[in-house]
Design a protein around this nucleic acid. Structure first.
Lengths: 205, 205
DNA sequence: AAGTTGAGCGTACATTTGTACGCTAATTTA
DNA sequence: TAAATTAGCGTACAAATGTACGCTCAACTT
């Protein structure tokens, strides 16, 4: 890659990072202005356009990148689970760790999921869908579920996890353990219930 | 109430209604400006301050009012359920109806739940908590659950319902039936799973 | 009847925002 | 080496925003 393209990439990264860094509990993506982001990245406002058509395009990039990061980290966690132990427990613990080290990735996903732009909502939904279908596939094979039951189960699990994530962002670290325990309990409910419903169906046939 | 206070109340209502009316899939509360709301309500921007300290105060009023509306409507639905039939099915159907006739109430609750203002998040959480504890209380008595199991179950149910609400806002009416069916299935999973876990605990004692 | 209160208004201003336009200087291409 | 491309900048401007200030006049109080 030429010197020029390299520098451009560097500036682009600076923009994305600047935007991520400005996110916080008090600051959502949609409240960021183009000028603020450019300022933080150390470039002139008008130079922003050399990299993104508008703030929307930046935001979609962030959602995609964030989702990717998340999936990569969760995948590592799943490898840990293969060594043995409760899949649910290990997944929840991994999730909490990921959340603690990437809070702003979660903020943008959680907030824009119910956001004001259809494109954003769709992008977030796409990321969540990745999780759901990966999990559904896993359950279908592992626990011998009907496809639509597996799907409903996976969706419920993912929703509960993400939701707990939203709460976790707002509480002290010490309270997070209790939250994780409750989440584990809820996930077990879903798994157990799905199993029971599956058997009832099987018996009927 | 005097003529004056009456007029004041009327204007205040106009402001709240104006704000609610401006909400949509493309417009969140935090994207509304004081001037826009005042314009829609038919008063001068500066007169806004005769009623609310700032937009934040207006928003909190909307959350409280919205939550109240919701609970009142769901309560009516519960009365319907007492006549017999599946509690889950009837509750879900009621919920969908409520959502369809008050979409903007949901929008503000769903969006500000992951919003930028701690006060808003707390207010929404308070409203959701009402639902959870009402339901937990009901389940504890009805199904003879341990308090903390009842709590975890109720929370899971409410989360799944609200979450489906968020999706429902974004889809065509015809697709909502499938969504409702899937939601019912998920709620049954939780209920069945909770029951199974409860029995396992009881047997152990 | 006289005095007080307060809802609503108009004017005004400083800030911030997005973005159009044209330049510069360094890199890339031919 | 000459020409073309382009990342980044500075200037500029129109639009919108929140809110301070002081006025009016109808409603209320005494």
């Amino acid at each position: 890659m030429g010197v020029r393209a390299q520098q451009k990439e560097k500036t682009r990264r600076a923009l994305v990072d600047a935007a991520f860094n400005q996110l916080s509990a008090e600051r959502s993506f949609s409240s960021l202005s183009l000028r603020e982001v450019a300022r933080e990245a150390g470039i002139a406002p008008t130079s922003f356009y050399r990299h993104f058509k508008d703030m929307n395009e930046l935001g979609l990039t962030m959602v995609d990148e964030g989702g990717l990061t998340l999936r990569q980290m969760m995948r590592k966690g799943r490898q840990r689970a293969e060594a043995g132990g409760s899949v649910i427990r290990i997944s929840v613990d991994t999730f909490i760790e990921v959340l603690e080290s990437n809070p702003n990735v979660f903020r943008i996903l959680l907030h824009e999921r119910s956001g004001t732009s259809a494109a954003f909502r769709a992008a977030v939904e796409r990321e969540i869908e990745h999780f759901i279908s990966e999990l559904a596939h896993y359950t279908e094979a592992q626990a011998n579920r009907t496809p639509d039951l597996a799907r409903a189960q996976a969706e419920a699990l993912v929703i509960l996890v993400f939701n707990a994530g939203a709460s976790a962002l707002d509480i002290k670290r010490s309270e997070r353990k209790a939250l994780a325990d409750q989440l584990v309990l809820q996930l077990r409910m879903v798994a157990t219930g799905a199993e029971a419903l599956q058997q009832k169906m099987d018996n009927r046939a």
